[in-house]
């Protein structure tokens, strides 16, 4: 089980959280201007990174807040957790 560092509550067990998929996917500003391929890329395609992966979690059995986590998907080591709206550091983006 992962031990997830909630930015508000501290280290809590994974069972308290739910994963929200890849982080920093921005909804296109003008969806009507997109081609079907571009829309599919936004909607369905995922980077599915092996290595450091930026993802969203929600502490739904705790403070119920959303936040971002940088986790290595090959080792499950969590590098850091940071708040929604913040950008990952260069190290986290590796």
């Amino acid at each position: 089980m992962l031990m997830i560092p909630c930015p508000w509550c501290g280290d809590r067990e994974e069972a308290e959280f739910r994963n929200g998929g890849e982080a920093h996917i921005e909804r296109p500003k003008n969806p009507d201007a997109l081609s079907d391929e571009q829309w599919a890329d936004y909607l369905f395609m995922s980077s599915n990174t092996k290595g450091v992966y930026l993802e969203r979690w929600v502490h739904d059995h705790g403070c119920r807040r959303w936040f971002n986590v940088a986790r290595n998907t090959a080792t499950n080591v969590i590098l850091s957790a940071y708040k929604i709206g913040q950008k990952p550091t260069k190290e986290e983006r590796q």
Binding site: M1, L2, E14, A15, N19, K50, Y53, E55, T73, N76
Partner: peptide, 11 residues
């Protein structure tokens, strides 16, 4: 969650 570690969580 996404993962390549070929292991999962106990719960």
């Amino acid at each position: 969650y996404n993962g390549y570690a070929q292991r999962g969580s106990l719960h």
